[in-house]
Design a protein around this nucleic acid. Sequence first.
DNA 1: CTTATCTTGGATTGGTCGTTCCAAGATAAG
DNA 2: CTTATCTTGGAACGACCAATCCAAGATAAG
Lengths: 198, 198
Amino acid sequence: MPDVKHFDADEALAAVELLFWRQGVTATGIQDIVSATGLSRSSLYNAFGSKEELYAAALQRYLDERSRPMFDRLASDDRGLPAIADFFDRLIRLRCTGRHARWGCLISNAHTEHSSEPARLLLDQHHGGLRAAFEAALEVARGKGDLRPGLDQAGAAEMLTLLAYGVNLRSRSGAAPKDLKAGVETCLHTLAKHPLGF
Amino acid sequence: MPDVKHFDADEALAAVELLFWRQGVTATGIQDIVSATGLSRSSLYNAFGSKEELYAAALQRYLDERSRPMFDRLASDDRGLPAIADFFDRLIRLRCTGRHARWGCLISNAHTEHSSEPARLLLDQHHGGLRAAFEAALEVARGKGDLRPGLDQAGAAEMLTLLAYGVNLRSRSGAAPKDLKAGVETCLHTLAKHPLGF
DNA sequence: CTTATCTTGGATTGGTCGTTCCAAGATAAG
DNA sequence: CTTATCTTGGAACGACCAATCCAAGATAAG
């Protein structure tokens, strides 16, 4: 008896995610979403509820589909410091070139825009996830004896996380990749016991 | 013959600055500005032009009245590394406590919201100003022999600037001051030649 | 006071905001 | 096919958006 859904909810959410990512929540109207998804207002509200809920869903999708894979790759990379360097290389390339150049990071952007408590929790999750991934990579580096003696690993993980946010932010205003790279590379050099070969 | 202005333009701009700082541009309506300044729409548009121009003026005021004094203090502080540590101490206190707690930095926030080219130039000015101040402090530290040998000072200045943006961003979502401090302190320790006494 | 000029408040513009509602269309079980 | 249920598109809601305009008020020189 009951009718089934006539569209792919996640496909629609993916389109919404791109809108919020590029333009922000407040600058994105429901009409923009209707146009981008091809769905009607009714279907949208029926499937996702209010705009705020839609935003939260988009944040969640970004965290799961975009951030987490980056975190996991970093955390399971057994190279230590080179893994961290690789992470930042990819990050800067992602932020400065290609389809999403100058978009920044949806989660970083949300720090300025968010309002609801569920949204804020997602930001903390993102922060914790990235920080944990850095800690894992640092622990590997320590095992290899690559870390500067006396380094506070927890503090270093927090520092690297804040640095990543800085990269995300500045890239949105068109910061030069070479400047971002210079800042990151100096940071990595100060973590290492011996001069790095990259 | 001509009549004179009946209000203090900078006083009004200061109120507008606070609104944009706390709520962002898009979330702030002209009506909010009318209420906060006590001025009429006519006076507002007559004195400042469009909302976009008003935003640019607020950014400029923030840069001149809030950021620059911090930069100048840092650049003219002759202590070197302790000057940098002091800068971050003040920054974190400013961002996490008091009247503007959890507001972040208007310029950092603008990275997500800005649209016009004049606004973007102000962001670059801010970045360059802070970076130059860090470079000056690092140069002092080098003169004292406090810097780790082989450190790239330009890269370190860029790193510290990105770190400050990270602090600004995370503070808006209620990051714990102790976490921010931990990240900053580790960063400073890695810059120093010898263990720091603070 | 007269007069010329600028300032001011309030009404008003056309447009867009997020959201709701309802009738028409689509679907699948019986 | 009938029937019950869900989906869909489009109209409509009141509220607010940035911006403009104009008549009335305030001001200061002569």
